[in-house]
Write a protein that binds this DNA or RNA. Sequence first.
DNA 1: GAATGAAACGGAGGGGCCTCCGCAATGTCT
DNA 2: AGACATTGCGGAGGCCCCTCCGTTTCATTC
Lengths: 187, 187
Amino acid sequence: MTSAKSTRSDAVSNRERILAVAREALRVSAGASLTAIAKQAGVGIGTLYRHFPNREALIVALYRHHIQEVIDLAPRLVATRPPLTALREWLAEVARYGQLKYGAAEVIHAATNDAEYYQPFVDAIRQLLDAGAADGSLKSGVDPEDVLLLLGVLWRIDPSAQGVGQRVERIQQLIVDGLREPVGGRG
Amino acid sequence: MTSAKSTRSDAVSNRERILAVAREALRVSAGASLTAIAKQAGVGIGTLYRHFPNREALIVALYRHHIQEVIDLAPRLVATRPPLTALREWLAEVARYGQLKYGAAEVIHAATNDAEYYQPFVDAIRQLLDAGAADGSLKSGVDPEDVLLLLGVLWRIDPSAQGVGQRVERIQQLIVDGLREPVGGRG
DNA sequence: GAATGAAACGGAGGGGCCTCCGCAATGTCT
DNA sequence: AGACATTGCGGAGGCCCCTCCGTTTCATTC
């Protein structure tokens, strides 16, 4: 455990350089080409692809830190808010993140197919659902993965369209309502 | 109206030939290349692109008929079922369609950005929502476009994964619950 | 510090999507 | 039938993603 498989120093520095360049290039234009990024980072395209097997992997790596923040927020909200409020605030943050990182939407969705990436997300959702189920404000037994799938919608809203903010809020509302424990009977 | 702008006969036949070839090619492999389709149809790639400005347009054209069937189903259901049942059955059909046409999911979503294609879909949803609002089983004032966005999720479920049928049902349930009129108060 | 095997590098090349524009077919008008 | 505007055709070529593999660099061992 102490001595992990040694990684060559050039590989490490190349990786970092690619990430730095990519962060900036993608910020400027979500469609920046990997060829251009490699060139700007002073590495061959082959090197870029060895480090990040495809476009998605690169973007996920870039946003991993930020994604982690969103995940970490869930337990904090659960600890400090009523469950329903926690859920709502968390969804708002998720949406906000999606708006910021538009262009990463497809990527995030794709990551949904890679357990390594989405499991922590699922766990975060589970905490929120469990808290709500415990105090009766949310249904119990909801599959967090189903909710994750629904959340994906929030990333697919074009943030340059009109009335995005309100649309996001309405959709959040619809999602939350679908998760709430029906107060009366069912049809 | 009687004499629309005349279209050259070669253009008409080419278009039909492309559609026929594409239908088969895409059935065999969802990722069939447009180059191959053009070649097989005996036209240049330029001709294919003139008729269908991009991959999506071609696929949408192929499925247009089927999509129309789904749209047409909505008013029939509204006329013959209680609103909530109509909505549920329609969602089931939408999901079933998505399962059949997996690979077209991205396309359908993209079409969501093209009013010509999605407007009829939105109208279909509106009818279902209005019927539900009228008898109080659904909230009133829900934006059909929001619902369309949510429905997109049903197309994004990998139909080859395990337990797909149940997942689809659960998500339908979540969506419908989000649309229902809360029987009790709100939190 | 030379040797050496493993790890990483680089970029040519294959295949895809789509654009552009010179050339050809069509159909209309006389 | 011939002339001509219009509509449509074809495929080279630009750019992109990604793979493959011969070459180079690193780090370790003697």
